[in-house]
Design a protein around this nucleic acid. Structure first.
Lengths: 362, 362
DNA sequence: TTGTAGGCGTTATCAC
DNA sequence: GTGATAACGCCTACAA
């Protein structure tokens, strides 16, 4: 079989414990002993059995990142950032794709599949505020996004309303009066759609513009295709439009596509802004202005919170952290040419303790 | 502490082994015994300790997927596909980002960080043919891509030369005579760049067109930015160009950006085709024709090969599998309008045994 | 500074 | 069909 610490100990003429000490970098070892052990390790090609260590230490140094789909650029970039941050902390990331399927998200929380990673960073997309009870889990959990608030867990979210308001105001500041929105979810009260739509309304109000329901384009899933379709419907409806706020960048790219198909100039005839600031919008034609929700900071914060939670258990009250967000102006709002960009608005985030610790025994 | 099989056994009044049998779906159990055990499990909230099982069974049912970066759409989509395929086989995927850093790729192969997953699917980007020796590892490994051939491992690659040839011929079939290429790596003999460039030359030859070095645009990293820059250099050099073959889609998107910046119409003035067929090119303006290398099939095949290798060890000769690829025509080559697409060429793949089994004792 | 004993929670082997 | 018992490979006491 595979070579174990025992074999190494034997060959080095020391005890298994000494080998363990060497492997784990325990400082108080006589140099010559260490050397002998290291020689033996080298010679035998010994490699630590992570599984055995995990069993013994009750830790795996792995965390789960649960996202809807990696093909969605926002989540791919988020995953990238989370993996990097985790790595800095010596953690490995196991990615779970929920596909936005309700059962899969529930399964994730009921912990049947867990028990392998030390904690979970979870970005729900199917579960909503009604399911807040499901988030009372007995393992370290950090929730991402705006589907669920006040769950008994640490939470990293964004400044949706303020950022959407700023984006809308930015369009208004260009002199646009007929600002459409793409990606609304009618009747929803929580979630990104509701919050960003609320920000949109606030922005209109602040700019002295009326809210016109005929300018609201619905789109269930926030994909490029749905953005294109929603934009198409708005344009074909005949309403006058001189600016569009797409509630995420995928839809902004889709909307741009629909605009182009109808030979409508951006930003000449219609200005366009998205949300998420994914890489794509920096290379579209024209480049698209967007709201940077602070993804890098979201990832780092999520990992930090999870690490703390793993260390402290439920000793600490839960926290909600909101990174700073900013509106980045590019060609689609006439803010830049040749691929440059400008920060045209900044919303500070913040963080708060949201609740007393909860005894987490399931 | 946590509830164990022992607790369940006690409560159900059976032995620990019986609990194990129930949990693992062992068939020969008296129904009433099973029921008592299941009740106890339910009651105590027992959950199997995966780590302990892993230690005992010497398997983790996890595999590693090592890719350069998830922010690159091609790899995000690949990861997505791999995760889905793995899941169908009951496997969980642990993603490792190498960042195309040579040391990280070597580290991956020397197995210091491994020993936790049952096998590895590895898409190298820094290592090359000279490093083929490093691929003689003592764990199940499936190699992806065209950086390294004839490594002692299963290999899933693509029909690069034939596909690039077909893409070039497709541009020629539109009557284009001045076909530029973006993303070449001068002096390289292996790797995607070399193979696709070779296909480009073959395509020119087949179309009766001369090879003109002034039409070759170099780009080290295949990102949107480098594609844009390479395209810009070509255009600014003053050479006549009526078509562009970008060696991947990211560069095609960048090239499109550069073309647009110079008010050059696509496909009117310049036709454009990419490679990879990522989601992005279906929503750019105009939509971009591309080569679909069969990514879905690549992912599925890689997982299948790895599963077989895990089961069989080195009993089987290594295999090389090449999925079918096809050229997908879209607006950028005038093949479609309104987001539709056409398959304009198909290259069959194939698979072969490439080598006798190698005794894999490191 | 190093060694010994024991157990982490599970599965495998064998009896019964 | 079910139960005792010994691994799996490591780490944490504690002892020397």
């Amino acid at each position: 079989m595979r070579v174990t610490m025992h074999d190494v100990a034997q060959r080095a003429g020391v005890s298994i414990k000494t080998v363990s000490n060497v492997v784990n970098g325990y400082p108080h070892i006589r140099p010559e002993t260490r050397e002998r052990v290291e020689d033996a390790i080298e010679h035998l090609g010994y490699r630590l059995n992570t599984t055995a260590r995990n069993l013994r230490t009750q830790r795996t140094d792995m965390i789960t990142l649960a996202v809807p789909e990696l093909r969605l650029p926002y989540f791919a970039e988020l995953a990238d950032s989370v993996i990097r941050s985790a790595e800095e902390q010596g953690l490995t990331v196991l990615i779970e794709q929920t596909g936005s399927v309700r059962e899969r998200e529930i399964e994730l929380l009921d912990g049947r599949r867990r028990h392998l990673t030390d904690g979970v960073i979870f970005s729900p997309l199917a579960l909503g505020q009604d399911d807040v009870g499901l988030f009372a889990v007995d393992f370290p959990l950090v929730v991402l996004g705006e589907r669920v608030f006040d769950a008994p867990a640490d939470h990293v979210t964004m400044n949706n309303v303020a950022a959407a308001r700023a984006a809308t105001l930015h369009l208004a500041s260009l002199g646009r009066r007929r600002i459409a929105v793409v990606g609304a979810h009618e009747g929803e009260l929580v979630g990104s759609a509701a919050l960003r739509t609320e920000g949109y309304r606030q922005g209109l109000r602040a700019a002295g513009l009326p809210y016109d329901p005929t300018l609201v384009g619905e789109a269930g899933l926030w994909h490029r295709s749905t953005g294109s379709e929603a934009m198409g419907r708005l344009l074909d409806s005949g309403v006058e439009i001189d600016a569009v706020f797409a509630l995420n960048d995928a839809m902004a790219l889709g909307a741009l596509h629909a605009l182009h198909a109808r030979r409508i100039d951006v930003p000449g005839d219609v200005a366009l802004i998205g949300f998420d600031d994914v890489d794509d919008v920096r290379y579209s034609v024209p480049t698209i202005s967007s709201v940077d929700p602070g993804r890098e900071q979201i990832a780092r914060t999520a990992v930090d919170l999870l690490v703390e939670r793993i260390a402290d258990g439920d000793e600490r009250p839960f926290r909600r952290v909101i990174p700073d967000s900013r509106v980045v102006g590019r060609e689609s709002t006439g803010d830049a040419t040749e691929g440059s960009e400008t920060v045209v608005a900044m919303q500070p985030g913040g963080n708060e303790e949201i609740e007393a610790p909860v005894s987490a025994t399931a």
